[in-house]
């Protein structure tokens, strides 16, 4: 029997646990070089078009945040995992 899945609303609980605090304290793994360090150590470029965070070691893009007219885009494709101390 295939495992049952539910829609993304089920993420609200666990993700609010993750993002209800200062996410810069979380440790991210850089897709580029594998370094794991707190996001607070990232190099962040405050381009007026959006925020771009790069790895402090290899300069790879970790994440981008863009504020649009009706919300925000968060792109985490440069981080292969986040460790959050709970």
């Amino acid at each position: 029997m295939m495992p049952r899945h539910v829609d993304g609303n089920a993420l609200a609980g666990p993700l609010s646990d993750l993002f209800a605090f200062d996410v810069t304290c979380a440790s991210g793994r850089c897709v580029g070089c594998g370094d794991v360090t707190v996001l607070a150590r990232a190099m962040v470029y405050e381009d007026e078009m959006g925020f771009v965070a790069r790895c402090h070691l290899c300069d790879s893009m970790l994440l981008t945040v863009v504020r649009t007219a009706d919300g925000a885009w968060l792109d985490l494709q440069g981080i292969s995992g986040l460790h959050v101390a709970l």
């Binding site: 381009d47 078009m49 959006g50």
Partner: peptide, 8 residues
Amino acid sequence: FPVLSAGP
């Protein structure tokens, strides 16, 4: 001439 840049 404002400067915008997403990286170094």
